[in-house]
Amino acid sequence: MLQVDNLHVIFGHGLDLNHAVKNVSFTVGQGESFGLVGESGSGKSTVLNCIAGLINTWQGEIEIDGERLSHRRPKSFYRKVQMVFQDPYGSLHPRHTVDRTLKESVNIHHLGDANLRVVKVLGEVGLGPQFRFRYPHQLSGGQRQRVAIARALILEPEILLLDEPTSALDVSIQAEILNLLQDISKKRNLTSILVSHDLAVVSHMCDNILVMSQGATVEALSCDQLRSGDIKQRYTRQLLVASKGYDRAAIDQFQDY
């Protein structure tokens, strides 16, 4: 479904040059849920932005359904690939109602039946009709993230890119949003890529995992390998310990990679 080959991303020139992603390759199958894991600055979000077309300075190959993507994306691309952002407070237009935010996508692609589609997709993400004409400032973080998910779903994409969709939410809401994403992915048979720093979240959601550090691939794992502890790299093991919560003794033993 989605294939990334030898992806390199370089920002800046000369002394400011930053090789943010180094030779990353992976394949995601139809209906599969794929996880990209790593600490801050490991380049995992950059990879996602390259696939979405938000970054234009990449080299390498990105293919969807065997079709190679160029730096400029046609309009039809956005009906196939959609993204949910990390910060629900920043990803909704502050002066647009939920209704307007969702209808905008329908209007861009001239899909018609805007009202029906909006009501349907809001129901799907668990928001009742009373939320339809609210402004973002009248919504909680979790509700905003549901609106952002609804916006991604209203175009009926095949691939969903999730950029740390729960890290800005409080812990009690995180599980709700993750379950919602899992249910929707299953129901719509979506292919999804989840970026996260939290191995626990990724092991809950994903079938296959790619661990990244400082722009490079550390190792590729399946979810079963992760659960059984069949981990080869020490960095991955350290991430796993870190995701289990704060432990003074464990953190003292951490190394920088």
Partner: peptide
């Protein structure tokens, strides 16, 4: 801002983004 990136990912052109958003 993320909401401008988001609308770009909905496939909006520059005229719609500038006038509407």
């Amino acid at each position: 801002g993320d909401f401008i990136k988001a609308i770009r990912l909905q496939g909006a052109g520059p005229i719609r983004i500038i006038t509407g958003h």
